Computed example of a mutant assay.
Amino acid sequence: MGDIVPRELISLADDEGNSVTVNVLGRDPRWSAGLAAEIVVRTPFVSGRIDLVLSTSDLTSWADALNRLDAGEDVAWMEWGRGPSFWIQLSGERDCPEVVVEDESGSMVTVRVPLVPPDDWIAAHQQRSHRVMAHWVPLLSAS
């Protein structure tokens, strides 16, 4: 079990078929200090994916965002980057959490996904974030 490479940084899904995931694909071939990753959105209505590159500071800011979510705050992640932006609003327009993915610099598309994750989703994502960082950050630091 220790040999399993942690790939899912974010995995939010509900019983209605809505999901948003951020998967680490491996080291970025163009930037030794970056990880190739993707955001995948799936709903019964619309599905899509977009590539992104994550740095150590992106992983750290996601861990910080989880702490703010745990304190009851909405968060923006990668809001000022050159790629897609990612928001989590704890009480969205439909009185449930919403994930908003915006690709303003590329396709100029914004997707808003309401979903009802399990009660322990923040704690589960804190553990997921820790596993991803423990595995990938030393590899990026060795570059």
Results as ranks from 00 to 15, higher is better:
Ser129Gly: 11
Asp103Ser: 11
Asn67Phe: 01
Pro84Glu: 05
Leu59Glu: 05
Thr43Ser: 09
Pro84Gln: 06
Leu59Trp: 02
Ser129Tyr: 02
Val40Glu: 13
Gln126Asp: 06
Asp74Gln: 07
Ala36Glu: 10
Gln126Tyr: 06
Ala134Cys: 03
Val40Ile: 10
Pro6Arg: 05
Gln126Asn: 03
Glu16Gly: 02
Trp87Leu: 07
Pro44Arg: 00
Thr43Lys: 00
Gly72Asn: 11
Arg27Leu: 15
Pro29Glu: 15
Ala76Gly: 14
Val113Lys: 08
Trp80Tyr: 12
Arg30Leu: 11
Ala71Arg: 15
Val46Ile: 10
Val99Ile: 06
Leu54Ser: 09
Ser32Leu: 11
Asn23Lys: 07
Ser105Asp: 10
Asp28Pro: 07
Glu38Phe: 02
Leu140Asp: 12
Asp95Gly: 14
Ser105Met: 02
Gly17Leu: 04
Pro114Trp: 00
Ala33Thr: 14
Ser141Ala: 15
Asn67Glu: 15
Trp62Asp: 06
Pro97Arg: 10
Ile4Asn: 02
Leu69Lys: 08
Arg27Ile: 11
Trp62Val: 03
Ser61Leu: 08
Phe86Trp: 11
Val109Gln: 08
Leu115Tyr: 09
Asp14Cys: 11
Arg49Gly: 15
Leu90Gln: 11
Val24Arg: 06
His125Phe: 07
Glu73Lys: 08
Glu104Pro: 00
Arg27Cys: 10
Asn67Asp: 15
Val132Ser: 01
Pro29Phe: 09
Arg7Glu: 15
Val111Phe: 01
Ile10Trp: 05
Met108Leu: 00
Leu35Thr: 10
Ala36Val: 06
Met108Asp: 12
Arg128Cys: 02
Pro97Tyr: 09
Pro97Met: 00
Glu98Lys: 00
Met1Ser: 08
Ser91Lys: 09
Val109Lys: 04
Pro6Ala: 06
Val100His: 04
Glu98His: 07
Asp119Lys: 12
Ala123Arg: 05
Trp31Cys: 10
Arg128Gln: 14
Arg49Ala: 13
Val40Leu: 04
Met1His: 12
Arg112Lys: 12
Ser55Thr: 14
Trp62Ile: 02
Ser11Gly: 11
Asp15Thr: 08
Ala142Tyr: 13
Ile88Asp: 12
Leu66Glu: 04
Thr110Lys: 05
Ser61Cys: 00
Glu98Ala: 09
Val100Ser: 11
Gly17Arg: 03
Arg27Phe: 10
Ala123Cys: 03
Leu59Lys: 04
Asp14Met: 00
